[in-house]
Design a protein around this nucleic acid. Structure first.
Lengths: 340, 340
DNA sequence: CGTCAAAGGTATAGCGCTAAACCTATCACA
DNA sequence: TGTGATAGGTTTAGCGCTATACCTTTGACG
């Protein structure tokens, strides 16, 4: 059977609460001698506290939900750069004795269910649409620390962490403009849904405005964040003769798909068309030619998330509501001056 | 405050146990009328059962640990193809009302701690070395359903799921042999540690034996599973004039690194050297030329894992101890006959 | 008519832990 | 001599749920 606090208490000849206090490192008054005796017995008997009992009695689970949108078929949508964030997140949280519960969310109501059921102390929402975050009410959020990653929702009940998507696209587009491009296409998913895409679009627009390049609506393309859609887009661009000599894509995988589509259609990258991606996923470094892209600071994203969570959990006072992280343009080999 | 069973019971004018039985869909005798009345109140009040209380009272947490090795610095090591497995795993388990707890494991002792502390009903061990699985004793495993993924440990306390690594390498090497290659290099991490690598090596050896190609030890290379090591290996191979005209690599990323190393050294892939990777990660499809590689059946890996877990959890009788999944060679563009 | 099974519940005793209040001995100090 | 502060504990009352044993009513059937 399980070794419980009671067992340890009996063996040490003290009350159960004394053991509890020692195990939890409380500042409570326990003599050094007793403390050491108890700790020795704890180690020797291999005592491990029961998280459920703790959670029940203390009304705090030391559990953080890692909530990820699940598509209709229930499949999780985890972008490759998100994975890197999760690793760091887990490590940092574990250091503070918090644990992660991974949970796919198909309908918004499930967020509430997950929070309540497991008595989560906090939650990290990965890649939800802004409107989902917007809809969270104090009834479901309660006292839970919620960090919405990559959200531009203004919901005061949640904390936010995101990269500077606007500036990222601004830098990418400026870079193309500086190379001499004037007809620069934008490719990204329908952006009504996600603030991230909208921000990137706005950054792109701003760079064009700076350069006094008139806006041509036909250069704005709705393309899904998949290799297939990107490829199709590349082919279409090649066929259309829209005069575009460069592409700003909202994701590396989309950019790489576009490169393939262009190449298949007989256009060279960056000879005929320059391409810039987004997120600096691993794959950007390994394609040929290597992809110029906007890099996020993923370790920072993770540690800021943890800091926001812990601040909320410990002090219960919210510092900043949202943090926007710097972003850098990584110039590799898919961008060059347009051919005259 | 939280809505509890008691609240529902009072409002429905029945005892707490009746509500509990209804909520848990027990076959217990409750009249249809009562059942419906209770369910209505449950919905209306937004009652969500407390997982910790359940876990404590029922001695079962409905929690499955997703245990991942953490390096010295605490960083998790999650291979890209593992991520896909996790998505499916979560979805399938959630359908059966089990939940996933993600946990990095730095020392073996932490496995025990994780199991005990959270009262896990089961655990999936992702990518641990065989010796770690070997060392698990009945004291730490207890009654927990443990599935060790990609392990070749014979530990009778655990269940195993893996792809047919041996056959994968066999197919890859046969393919090269069939193309006419005779000097085929093998590149993979030091395989004392991982059964996966050893199996792949044995498959490779067998294919050579079949073709009556004498074994040349210098063709066996210890290369880490990173792009950097692969690249270094490619350069070395080009410099050494070992006469190798083909490479079997134990991972796509390693293969892609090798391709880069070779190309940088002036050798063409597949013109001068053919390359086969392993795992068919996304990246294999997007490099140029597209990588020939051995694909695992990841959805199957996930669903078999879930089935093994559930069988153990429900019937508490273990069916097969280990399942080995079929594997397919995906011929793309990095393999060609050697140049005469 | 007796009795026995089944339907439809209820009552009780924890699961392992923590928060909060309480107790006692000892010592300082005015 | 009384007061009170402090160290070093203990006691009590749950947290929200489930397992288990138990109880009552009803109807069937020989």
């Amino acid at each position: 059977m399980r070794v419980t606090l009671k067992d340890i208490a009996e063996e040490a000849g003290v009350s159960l609460m004394t053991v509890s206090n020692v195990v939890n490192g409380k500042k409570a008054r326990v003599s050094e001698a007793t403390r050491e005796r108890i700790l020795r017995i704890v180690r020797q008997r291999g005592y491990v506290p029961s998280a459920s009992a703790r959670s029940l009695a203390a009304r705090s689970s030391r559990l953080i939900g890692l909530l990820v949108p699940a598509e209709g078929d229930g499949n999780l949508t985890i972008s490759p750069h998100t994975v890197e964030v999760v690793g760091t997140l887990e490590r940092e949280l574990r250091r503070h004795d918090y644990h992660l519960m991974l949970r796919g969310i198909a309908e918004t109501a499930e967020i509430n269910e997950a929070l309540r059921s497991w008595n989560l102390d906090g939650a990290v929402l990965l890649g939800f649409q802004d409107k989902v975050i917007d809809r969270l009410t104090s009834r479901t959020v309660g006292n839970v620390a919620i960090v919405a990653m990559d959200s531009y929702s203004e919901n005061p009940l949640t904390l936010g962490v995101r990269s500077d998507d606007y500036t990222g696209a601004l830098l990418a587009t400026r870079h193309l403009v500086a190379l001499g491009h004037r007809r620069i296409a934008f490719a990204g998913p329908a952006f009504a849904a996600t603030g991230v895409v909208r921000q990137r679009f706005e950054g792109y627009r701003e760079a064009l405005r700076e350069a006094a390049i008139p806006w041509d609506e036909t250069l704005q393309n709705t393309v899904e964040t998949t290799h297939g859609s990107g490829r199709e887009f590349g082919r279409r661009l090649a066929a259309e003769h829209s005069g575009a000599t460069a592409i700003v894509a909202t994701a590396d995988i989309l950019a790489i798909g576009a490169m393939e589509g262009l190449t298949e259609s007989g256009l060279a990258v960056p000879g005929d068309v320059s391409v810039v991606g987004f997120d600096d996923t691993e794959i950007a470094r390994y394609v040929t030619p290597k992809l110029t892209t906007v890099a996020q600071d993923l370790p920072a994203k993770a540690s800021v998330t943890v800091r926001l969570l812990l601040d909320h959990l410990l002090r219960a006072e919210t510092p900043e509501k949202a943090t926007t992280l710097d972003v850098t343009l990584i110039e590799r080999s898919t961008t060059a001056p347009p051919t005259a």
